[in-house]
Design a protein around this nucleic acid. Sequence first.
DNA 1: AATATTAGTGTTGTTTATACACTAAAGTAT
DNA 2: ATACTTTAGTGTATAAACAACACTAATATT
Lengths: 239, 239
Amino acid sequence: MQDEHPVPYDVSKYQLPAVTVDVVIFSLINRTLHVLLVQRKRWPFEGQWAIPGGFIRLDESLEEAARRELEEETGVRDVYLEQLYTFGDVHRDPRHRVISVAYIALVRADVQTIRVSDENSDVRWFPVDHLPTPLAFDHDQILAYALSRLRSKLEYTTLAFQLLPELFSILELKHIYEQILGEKLDKGNFYRKIKESGILEETPYMREGRGRPTRLWRFRRDRPGDKQFVFRWREDRRE
Amino acid sequence: MQDEHPVPYDVSKYQLPAVTVDVVIFSLINRTLHVLLVQRKRWPFEGQWAIPGGFIRLDESLEEAARRELEEETGVRDVYLEQLYTFGDVHRDPRHRVISVAYIALVRADVQTIRVSDENSDVRWFPVDHLPTPLAFDHDQILAYALSRLRSKLEYTTLAFQLLPELFSILELKHIYEQILGEKLDKGNFYRKIKESGILEETPYMREGRGRPTRLWRFRRDRPGDKQFVFRWREDRRE
DNA sequence: AATATTAGTGTTGTTTATACACTAAAGTAT
DNA sequence: ATACTTTAGTGTATAAACAACACTAATATT
């Protein structure tokens, strides 16, 4: 609420915190879940890696700011974006009071047009289980929370599809689940469940490989409003 | 992240949004889920009801600010508190740019020592299905989201216990679930499930009523780290 | 003593999960 | 050409969880 206590129309005479929007950007690279980090060039935390972000402008909403950051860092638009949490401890930035609204972004594997992958860049993809810890600020905490959210939402949303290209095989989809959940899933059960859900649309296309060729499928966005997709592989869901 | 773009140590020369913390306070009153609202005394939205909240101070964290608001409005401490979402649309406050970090609080039924219940007070409890809509600002949206979160977390957390007094019967607990979920649950299945979960501790106390006296139980906080409590009555969980 | 009221248990059929064995279609080696 | 390897995909048997609903229990009221 904005006031039952009197509040001035001119807010500038009050001490205000700064507000940033940070975006934890995930993508699947070489079948492994990666996160995009930037290397800091000055104090504090000089040389350490951080989650990309920046100050919010007065004429953009939080989500607009997140999309702007995302596009600045990766050049991609139209990606999955969701608000994660707002971090506001008093001393999380040693310079001044900064409140950070964190977002999660999922970038599709085939949109890897991003030119940030060379070794000397100050913007780089890291596998989520080989992070350059400790990260700057409280970003270890933010990233851990982002992963936890990702895992938890995987099972009751269609979030995994955001990481896949237009056409994919069922075993590739299974691989994403395994990547994010960090555990093996049963092939037969996965096939059964994903098919029963009706969430996939068969295409006439196949992909050849070393063994038997595989059928390619497409994510069904239209879905007649019928049965929701609920994927649950474990019972201890918790965030 | 706070900067790959250069950032001044003196932040005051930039235009900053104001940051408020709003707390959606739920409680169970007369076996019905209620929410605490305050009536606005001035423009904008004069006379309309709003979620209690206020500006954040530079020397307190977000959660500390939420607890302060909560205590100012209700006089209670030690309540369940959880961050809900951060609302930051550009024009949600017509006066200036305000970003609001919303929290949910659950106040136990027996801590209703609060003196806000008289008819003419500008602070009042409303049943969640009889709200004085439209609320001020975007508070309809915030409240709807809070309810949705409450329902969704009910099934996989121990959140419901936060609304109950120290001792309670199993059917009272069932009643809370029904209140929040908005649907009837099967008595037998509820008994079985809650008992199997091991989350309740039996006490020697009984309560007399009109029919057969009822056993009183207590929420088991210690819980040997064993099996997690997962309550799921429907399959279409989604937020 | 019968009835109403609230508390609490048991039973049964159905669905869903889990583990794991099996079949299928391609390439590669002998 | 035949057997072997590799990856894809199906089937099945058992166990666990769920949902509906009938039943028993302990008190107060008529």
